[in-house]
């Protein structure tokens, strides 16, 4: 198989102590310390008030990364196909429905029910951006970032159009937290373009390999990488932050990993 080649036009990262790409870039480049604390997210934009009232952490996070990446690419979100990738739907909402179903009165709220679908962030995004382009929503447990990147890249190459990838995860409350201990919400977004334009910041060459995944040298960033599926992307994000050329291997599905050759000066 020859490598799949795609350009990165826009980038975003929000997570604990990583409040947007500018700050994250400094942390990942080693110019600022990581202070682990719940992420500071901008207010949800572009949604009608009725919808805005109904959104939880997962939608706030996906909106924050989506808009930042689109702006940094100078792209019009109304014309971008999207790939949403996360290991779980809205965790708080899911917990609440499970508690309600275990109670004597099983009155599930209709809003909670329609927000429980895995593609709720995609639905809200399309409403907020008036985007009628194709959108998919994926899950591959811990492999969710690589799965999303492959899907977004093949979507973009096959349609010959840019595609927005959003990979993000939120945290469960107990008792499910014990079984799925994701410590903090974190999300990354990339605007991928099959064509080199003035917006291009890097070129990625993707191939499936059986070599081991790259680790983060910093212990706390490595803890995030290992415990948040979307943070499996951090070795890639670090190269993009430093503007360095290089090759990283990102966790995928046993026995395959995803090798990404990054060329930043394009």
């Amino acid at each position: 198989m020859s490598a799949l080649q795609i350009y990165v036009d826009g980038i975003s990262l929000f997570g604990p102590g990583l409040s947007g790409w500018e700050q994250s870039r400094e942390v990942l480049a080693g110019d600022a310390a990581l202070l682990l604390a719940p992420p500071q997210l901008p207010p949800v934009e572009c949604l009608p008030p009725a919808e805005r009232r109904r959104v939880g952490m997962l939608i706030k996070l996906s909106m924050a990364i989506g808009f930042e990446a689109v702006r940094s690419a100078g792209a019009d979100p109304a014309h971008l196909a999207t790939v949403f990738s996360s290991t779980e739907a809205d965790c708080d909402n899911c917990h609440n429905i499970l508690e309600t179903l275990a109670s004597p009165d099983r009155a599930v709220s209709p809003t909670r029910f329609h927000n429980s679908v895995h593609n709720a962030p995609s639905g809200y995004w399309s409403i907020a951006t008036a985007c009628m382009e194709p959108s998919t929503s994926l899950c591959a447990y811990d492999a969710t970032f690589s799965a999303g990147l492959l899907e977004a890249t093949t979507q973009s190459l096959n349609s010959s159009k840019p595609t927005l990838l959003l990979a993000y995860d939120a945290t469960f409350p107990e008792p499910l937290f014990e079984l799925r201990p994701i410590p903090y919400p974190l999300g990354v977004a990339l605007v991928l373009n099959p064509v080199k334009t003035a917006s291009a910041r890097a070129q990625l060459s993707l191939s499936l390999v059986t070599s081991d995944a790259s680790k983060m040298p910093d212990a706390e960033l490595e803890m995030l990488r290992l415990n948040i599926p979307a943070a499996r992307s951090l070795p890639l994000m670090q190269l993009l932050a430093k503007g360095s050329n290089g090759t990283v291997v990102i966790d995928y599905l046993e026995p395959l990993n995803l090798s990404i050759e990054v060329q930043c000066a394009v």
Binding site: N119, S122, S137, L138, A147, E151, Y252, L253, P255
Partner: peptide
Amino acid sequence: QGPAFVVST
């Protein structure tokens, strides 16, 4: 041992 995921839309 190939690529896999679930679509949930």
